[in-house]
Every structure is written in structure tokens, then in C-alpha cells.
Nucleic acid binder design. Sequence first.
RNA 1: GGGGCCGUAGUUAAGUCGGUUAUAACGCUGGCCUGUCAAGCCAGAGGGCGCGGGUUCGAGUCCCGUCGGCCCCGCCA
Length: 589
Amino acid sequence: MGDWKRTSYCGELTAADIGKNACLMGWVQRRRDHGGLIFIDLRDRAGIMQLVFSPESQGNVHEAAHGLRSEFVVAVKGSVRRRPEGTANPNLSTGQVEMDVQEIRILNDSEPLPFMIEDDSDVAETTRLKYRYLDLRRPSLQNKLVLRHKVSMATRNYLADNGFIEVETPVLTKSTPEGARDFLVPSRLSPGHFFALPQSPQLFKQILMVAGMDRYFQVVKCFRDEDLRADRQPEFTQIDAEMSFVDREDVISVMEGLIIKIFSEAGLTVNPPFPRLTYAEAVGRFGVDNPDVRFGLELVDLTKALAGSGFKVFNDAASKGGVVKAICVSGGASFSRKDLDDLTGIAASFGAKGLAWVKVTEEGWQSPIAKFLLDDEKNAITSATGAKVGDLLLFAADKAAVANTVLGRLRLNIGGRLGLIPKDELKFVWVTDFPMFDYDETEKRHVAVHHPFTAPMDEDLELMDTAPLQVRAKAYDLVLNGSEIGGGSIRIHRSDIQEKVFAMLGIQKEEAMERFGFLLEALSFGTPPHGGIAFGLDRIMSIITKSDSIRDVIAFPKTQKGADLMTDAPSVVDQKQLDELFVRVAKKV
RNA sequence: GGGGCCGUAGUUAAGUCGGUUAUAACGCUGGCCUGUCAAGCCAGAGGGCGCGGGUUCGAGUCCCGUCGGCCCCGCCA
């Protein structure tokens, strides 16, 4: 660059700059060489500016422009002038002006690119990820990173303004049972011992409450060694917060304020307080605990109406403690055989043994099961579901968990295929009153639905011994458009209750002391009542930016196999490194 | 661990029932061209079909295996 100093970004120049001299630096987006006049679109983070090289210009400026190629890095000096009448470009923010270039310095050249730097290019993700630095030159991806930065800043400002202190917690920490699989880091100084990367700073933030910090937050990386999805990466970022001397309503109200700030960074208006659903309502009406409430198609419970039905499948489910539920698809009677086969396949993938359906037609019920149902039963179904001619009824009869999941997933699939989901709406809902425990059939023990530090509801404490599955937790999730974007709870602040919960989870006292002794001890030294929440920043960003995948809002994401195609991590390491760590690699995984 | 979809020039795709030298667009290279902005016109180079086997007179097309990418189930306190 020599002694040249940039005077502005390419995308910033406007008619107000006409007549001024400017120095720009950036990448060659495109060259339009007329032999005489040469036009160069110069691109930087802020946008594009048209450069004009005239054959009459001094020295070898015109010749240099002739040699420019895509993505060469150049610095130019010249004057900003209004474009001639009729040549303005309304698609550019700088479209009223252009630079008459008088001097140019080529700062670097570029090999021909593996793909073009264009927003609408449709390049295989493998190639994009290998050359992520080129992919990130695309304005759409850059804008997502810029918006992510603004959201982080807004988060820090809002929480700081509300008395939260950002405290860094360790990345090398202790492996704890329960929860996701840990990423492990071998300790060189303690052979045979391992650190774990944090699944979340959960215990540290609670201990910061014991330490009297009162309000803590952190924008922090978390790590979970589980299989990836479109909305799941092995390392992801949480907006993590914890507060002392609060109940659920305090947490919710502060965090609704944060959500307002975050979305306003993207020019989106949201209006808390957000509606609430209990876990039982959410699962009952929508089949899932992360309901997309942008559309109806709710589940209808027909268990009572169909108990004693002549249709064995319904009767069995109803009499054996299960449920019979249905959804009524408006206009669904026009579904083809193939559509119904598709839906049956989906139902099966979520554990259904079959999918009973009824098409309501002018001629009556067209259905494989119609002949098993009495008129009274048909009438009861019709009145409960509101089914009318042209509709399709889909039934699930099974254990409640299976029936709800099956219909909940069918609801989402059908909502999508019928275009029932308004794409531009933002529908938040708090889901509360989660159960404390679930029973794991494989491990034959209770597991925590949220995490083992979540406080049970006071009024349910007495059920801990008699009916643990009925104990509700002081836990809450924030769901946006069917995506869980945050979750938290009021924590246990008494060591006796914490020990009790560990016992319920089948964690022996000895093991509890070894794994969580520091927490139990901390709880015994004057712990304030406290609670908190963590939001998934990546998920929030992917919803705000309408991205198909969480990968689009992460600068350097990993593939579904957990690999980084740019750096080629993970990779094998030298035997010397392994020796130092006292690690031996087992043959054949 | 399981199910589904996909790998053909640099990129995006086409390639019939297996059959001459694998096709197009964009990009790239060269030439012409003074108001373009997906500049235009002309010419040219570039791949042997992810990889490895097999069937066949003959495989991009069929079979088996394998590697990689995407979506999903399980998993994700």
C-alpha cells in the first residue's frame, strides 16, 4: 500500500461525495473491458463501487486495469463523480456515482476461483466449506456475521445495563455423568486423567451465585459430542445467565427484555409478554414440547369417546392406559394414496404401528376403519374434531408418548406441505412445568428431564418418593416457531434436596460426592435461591436470518461427521504427542 | 448404530434401453470493442465420470464394496 491510506469503504460513497478525491481498497468483483473504457466493480465489506478507467488516463493506469482479474486486491485513487445521465445503477447503494481512477496499485493477484463470489450461486457445500474464506466473501454470509456481532453486542449491553457481570468460566473442566457425551482432553501432568470441555457452564454459574456475584452472564462456547443436525453443531454458543434471589417470573421478565433487544437489531419487533403453555398442554395439544404455534391442526383427544370401541386398535389403546388422538386436516380428503403412504411412513419412523385415516366425503366416510366404528362413535369423532366434508382425519392409538409424538410430527409435516405455516411470523411461547424425571427403559432408572440441579416445584416435593414421574420442575423453555431457543430453571439451593435428587437419579452418595462434591459442599455454605437460563445464539441467528442451516451463521462450521473441511480437522497426531499424554490409540474403532 | 438423497470439466447441470471422439451454460485463456453493470461479439483450452473391484465384446449408465456431502431416526441432562 506504500503510504496510501484508505479514505472510505467502497459501499459508503454517495452523491454527497461528488467532486471529492478518494482512496479505496478492495477486491475486484467484476471487470467489464470495452477495450477503451474499462469498468471495475470494487468490493469490500461495505459494498460495491464502480471504478472507471479511461484510455486517456495518465501513465499505465488503463493498461493495469486491463490486466485485472477476479478477486485481485487493489488500491485506487481518483475522484468521485456523478455517473452520466441514464447510466445510474439503482441496484447499488453507490449507483449514482463512480470513481474516475487516476492511480492504481495492485496489492495482490488471485488464482482463478473454485467458485464465483455471488450471493445467488448454488455451489456444493463441500466446496464452500473447503474454501470457507471465499464463501465468507459473499455479502449474504458477511451480513449474517455482522448481524451476529450486533446481537452479541446488544446482549452484552442489555445484560450489563441490568446488573449482570460477565465472568469467564473454564474450558478445561471436569467430566460429569448425565447429559451429553463429553469431549475429553487428556492431562499431560496427570497421566490417565482427563479434562472435559463444558457442555455448559452450569455448575460454575451456580457457584458464582454462591460466591455472591448476584447476576452473571457469558456469551460462551459449549461442547457436546453428539451427532449433528441442521440445527446442531458439536461446538455452539450460548448466551448464559444466572440470577440470585429470583423466581421464575423474574428470570422470564428480564429475558423477554433481552429478546426484544436482540430482535430489534435485525429490525424485528417482538411484543412480550409471550404466551405460556405448560408442558402438559404443549404435548397434549401439539404433541411436542417445542410447539410451533404459528398454525393450528391441533391434536384432539378421543380416548374417552372411543373406549370400548369395536375397533380393536382403539379399544386396546384406551383400555391399556394409552390414548386415542387425532388431527383433522382441512381439505385433506384430496390426499392421494401416495400422500397417505408417505404419512404412514413418517408415523412409523416415530414408532407408530400404523396410521388410521378417514376421508370425509359427500358419500360419507371413506376409510379402511369405517366399518369397525359405530355411528355414535363417528358422531363423537366428528363433533370433537370438527371434521367436515373434504377433510382428512388421522388417528394415533398408542401409549401417550408415542401417539403424541406421531401426531405432533405429522402435524408439522402436513403444516409444511399444505403451506399452513406463515414464514414471516415470529411466535414465541414459554413452555413451563416440565416433569422433573423421565424413566429410561434402557438404563432402568430415572433421568433428569432438564438437568439434575433443577428445583422441583414446592407443592410436588411430597411426590418425590411416591410418584416421582408426577413431580414437576421449576423449568422453562423459550420456543420460537417450533425451535427451542432457550431453556432454564430455578435451581436447587439446598444440599439436602440436591442429595435427594441425586438419589432419585440413582447416583449413589459416593459417586455424587466424587462428581459433584464441590457443588454439594458449596450449597452448604449459604447459597442464595437462584435460577437462570441459556439461549442458543446460533439457533436464534439462524431463525433471524432465515437460514436453512445453523452452519450459515457460524464462521467455521463442521460437517455432519464433525469435520472441518478447511483445516481437515480432526487429524492424526504424532506418536510423540500421544506418548507425552500417555494415550494409546486402540486398533480399529 | 440405522433409513433416505447425492457425487460427471473450475462451477452448475444433461447424458435415453449399456454402444463411435462424454454435452451445455457460466467461469477461464486469447482477440475485437469508449458507458457497461450477469457488458457484447469471435476463437480456444479444459474432464474420462469420487475411489476400488466385478459383470460384459463394450460401463458415466448394471452389481458389490468404499470414501465424502446433505436430510432424518436413535442420541442431544
